[in-house]
Design a protein around this nucleic acid. Structure first.
Lengths: 243, 243
DNA sequence: TCAAAAGTGTTGACTTTACACCCATGA
DNA sequence: TCATGGGTGTAAAGTCAACACTTTTGA
């Protein structure tokens, strides 16, 4: 018994919304990896004739029964086989003509994966890792999406312990510094870098040494478990069901 | 003449997208104002029966022929009459059940307006300014959207000259400090605050004094013109046409 | 024995914080 | 003459950037 007769119910409003269900929504994932002292991004050959020869980010339309985070997580899982991955929403791109097939608004996420993880299996011949620095042109507005995500990554890395998702579990301080340098595209002072990392107190000294380097080996560290966060929501939800 | 016959054209792909045109997309604006030493937000009484008695943010569905920024700008203009407003995208909320009328994904923006601007005209009886600190419950997931936008605002204000959009053109350093305190919900040291603002070099000394205060009047300042940015894209586009 | 990187401290510049007094104005 | 806020400087603590030498290891 509504007091105010001008109130609509959700059911009634649904009808008037129908006109607007003609914009599609997608997610695009900027999947970063790290190899050979370079920051990489996972790209696929575009399957649209309009963009023949160009690469694009990995994305898909959002399904009616999944939320945005799940959709990007699904894209990631389908393309890489990985299911415990750091993933963060960055920005939504909604220019009218950004997609030649029609009106598609896309929400961009960035993901950080260990390019050497044993579970990583690229599921498609046209999927390849590209050095971020070498990328000139991408399909759609994906170059601009990539830049936005790279900027976000750069803002995050000194404040939050995220880059460890790009490394194997054990790493030396040299490897860590090289990774920071690759992301920031700059050189860092070794002593200052080590001091800064020490203050954060993110690392656990494993009392192990590198054994595969052609020079004096460094100590190995791993991220303290309390700072691992990756994709919490998913982990909680699925691990109960998976038993 | 495509070399690879598996390439689709955009026209072909359009068909397979049709299944997905059943998610609506909206924008929601967290419109901040400042009055009486309190940070305010503009809310409207929800017109959905499900949320009777609750307030909600100002939003609307995105039209097929407008981009996201334009849509949020339109909401702002329609609701406040203002057309030169600071507006920034914050985050996109896409939980499956966030809207009782169906699947609606929303992109949140925050706006900063001068609550005393002579052009400001609230176009609806159920539109009111609410103290951010007093808000308990909002319709939909709007409380969480508000919190996300408030956090973003707090992150921005020391780095970027944005808060001036909440003040009249001329203001004293006391007014500016009170505004920062309202946004951050904390007290600031007067001398340190003034030093910090002086270093930014954002302000122009107008060589005028307050004349409406019951105590010693302070100097008046305004933001240097080169730091005004508000909604650049719109201004550029419309001013040419408007002549 | 050489090449490569590990490991490690100090100094100066700068930034941040805490803190107190006199002044100008209107009521 | 009182209450209110305007306006101002300094010292101590902390942070940041620059910089060099000795050690360990593998080749």
């Amino acid at each position: 018994m509504p007091k105010n007769s001008s109130l609509k119910t959700a059911e009634l409003e649904k009808i008037s919304h129908l006109d607007y269900f003609n914009i599609a929504i997608s997610v695009d994932c900027v999947i970063f990896g790290y190899d050979n002292k370079e920051l990489k991004v996972l790209l696929i050959k575009s399957d649209l004739e309009e963009f023949e020869g160009l690469y694009s980010l990995l994305g898909d339309l959002v399904r009616p029964d999944e939320d945005l985070d799940s959709a990007s997580y699904r894209v990631l899982r389908e393309r890489t086989g990985l299911d415990d991955v750091f993933l963060e929403q960055v920005h939504t791109f909604g220019s009218i003509n950004r997609h030649p097939s029609g009106r598609v608004i896309t929400t961009a996420y960035y993901a950080l994966v260990d390019i050497k993880h044993h579970k990583l299996k690229l599921n498609h011949n046209d999927l390849h890792w590209h050095s971020v620095n070498d990328i000139r042109k991408l399909a759609f507005d994906h170059k601009s999406i990539l830049e936005t995500c790279l900027n976000r990554l750069r803002e995050q890395i000194m404040e939050h312990p995220v880059v460890f998702n790009l490394l194997s579990e054990k790493f030396s301080l040299r490897e860590l510094q090289e990774l920071y340098q690759a992301i920031l595209d700059t050189d860092l002072d070794r002593r200052n870098f080590r001091k800064k990392i020490a203050i954060k107190d993110w690392l656990l000294d494993l009392n192990e040494m590198e054994d595969d380097v052609p020079h004096r080996p460094g100590k190995l560290y791993k991220l303290k478990p309390e700072f691992r966060k990756k994709n919490q929501r998913r982990k909680a939800g699925s691990s109960v069901l998976a038993g």
